[in-house]
């Protein structure tokens, strides 16, 4: 019998995943998509498993997506967020870990403003850890759901020209996506104003350009990143008006892309800043599919990790 493709107990970043592992998650997610179409949207896969959602940073979208995925898998879940949590920033990682261990969870989903906190936590607890975003470092389930959405729409990822545009310096979405999409064989270009680019951006592993037109020329997929409006104080761009003027995606500018290009956005979108409503709501947009697919991909991840941690395969849906 050959070794199973998936043996990981944690999902910390795309950086650690092989191409085969990424494809395995995507293939597994396929079988969870139709659960959402059932009259009773629930499978017994994770019955008796406890999942803790630990959000040290406000999140609506990602936390509800995980929560729905957990509920549809019949897991018992509990949510800690910054507003309701006594686990505070001043607590040591060891204390956080011990407190979690005391509740004997099977999986912990964590979002934290600081890079590699999920990795550090994973070293300290027995439960499986899922990184739901660590600072501007990684957001692996977002990248997996984006790849899943692209593959469903385009039938493949390999060979596609994909542009990712926006605040590259402060985006965890871009880091995980570049790793994931290049591993699957796409040609990825990142673009944004120079004030929103990190030092040596080529080290991310993508082609780097500084104009929207150049980035989307011939692109099969255009992914727009959310402009962090609160970062405006950091003199990254002078005004929302000027940002839209030079880096906002409009139907007019989209003409440079491939005829059947799809438009993606990790959400929540800023209409009229990084993306015009005509594009966000237009026929090219797969933004809501991303949200729907997010649940299926997160179900797949939870299922695979729970199986790896318990050493047994749970029932498939």
């Amino acid at each position: 019998m050959s070794e199973p493709v998936w043996q990981r107990g944690d999902l910390l970043g795309v950086a650690e995943l092989s191409t085969a592992e990424i494809l395995h998650v995507l293939d597994t997610a396929e079988s969870f998509v139709e659960v959402a179409a059932r009259p009773i949207k629930k499978v017994p896969t994770l019955r008796g498993k406890t999942v803790i959602n630990l959000f040290f940073e406000p999140s609506t979208r990602t936390s509800s997506s995980f929560e729905i995925a957990e509920k549809r898998l019949s897991a018992d879940n509990i949510n800690f967020s910054t507003s309701s949590s006594s686990l505070s920033k001043g607590e040591t990682l060891l204390d956080t870990a011990r407190n979690l261990e005391a509740m004997a969870p099977d999986l912990v989903v964590i979002r934290h403003a600081h890079p590699r906190v999920p990795h550090a936590l994973a070293e300290r607890i027995a439960a499986g850890v899922i990184n739901a975003g660590d600072g501007a470092h990684e957001h692996p389930t977002q990248a997996l759901l984006d790849a899943f959405t692209i593959r469903r729409r385009k039938g493949r990822v390999e060979g596609l020209k994909i542009a990712i545009v926006g605040d590259v310096a402060h985006s965890r979405v871009v880091r995980s996506n570049v790793l994931c999409l290049t591993r699957l064989g796409a040609e990825v270009t990142v673009a944004g104003p120079r004030t929103m680019m990190p030092e040596e951006p080529e080290s991310l592993g993508a082609r780097v350009v500084y104009s929207l037109a150049e980035a989307i020329e011939g692109a099969d997929v255009v992914m727009m990143l959310r402009v962090q409006l609160e970062r405006q104080a950091r003199v990254s761009f002078p005004s929302e008006r000027e940002y839209f003027e030079f880096f906002g995606l409009t139907a007019e500018r989209l003409r440079g892309a491939s005829d059947d290009a799809i438009i993606m956005h990790p959400g929540p979108i800023n209409r009229g800043i990084e993306i015009a409503s005509e594009v966000a709501d237009g026929p090219w947009s797969v933004i809501l599919e991303q949200v729907a697919n997010g649940v299926a991909v997160r179900m797949a991840v939870l299922y695979l990790l729970a199986g790896a941690k318990s050493g047994e395969d749970g029932p498939r849906p």
Binding site: G135, A136, H137, R175, E199, P201, S203
Partner: peptide, 15 residues
């Protein structure tokens, strides 16, 4: 340090 490694880690850099 702000450079290729802070870029890959998404860590705020000190130039």
């Amino acid at each position: 340090h702000e450079g290729r490694f802070s870029t890959r880690l998404g860590v705020e850099g000190i130039p």
